[in-house]
């Protein structure tokens, strides 16, 4: 049986990759994928704890996260499509109309 630590370390690495990608990439779709990556890293930690503790709570949370992520993907992709149409660009640095 794989020790829980290994899962957690993998989860941390994936989450870190997500952060780095989110901060340094400019393409909106890439940012979106980075968010998905972070969510799934957390999901991995949840199921690892669920298995280690022998309780189903973590798995329930994971299901919730997947549902929310699906909804978020639907809305987010809609926003991305509209942005792309209006701006003719997927560069996130050009989506800054809210600044002062």
């Amino acid at each position: 049986m794989v020790p829980t630590n290994y899962y957690l370390i993998l989860s941390a690495i994936l989450f870190g990759l997500g952060i780095v990608a989110f901060v340094f990439k400019r393409n909106i779709i890439t940012l979106f994928m980075a968010i998905e990556l972070m969510l799934n890293a957390v999901n991995l930690a949840f199921v690892a704890f669920s298995q280690a503790l022998g309780k189903p709570d973590g798995e329930v949370f994971v299901l919730f996260v997947i549902v929310v992520a699906a909804a978020e993907a639907a809305v987010g992709l809609g926003i991305i499509i509209l942005t792309a149409r209006n701006r003719h660009s997927l560069n996130v640095e050009r989506v800054d109309l809210l600044k002062l």
Binding site: V23, V92, V95, D96, K99, L100
Partner: peptide, 17 residues
């Protein structure tokens, strides 16, 4: 201080992190 409000999503993310 208002320059912190850059409108750039990723800079906000950095602050969050």
């Amino acid at each position: 201080v208002r320059h912190a409000q850059s409108g750039n999503v990723r800079s906000y993310a950095v602050w969050v992190i």
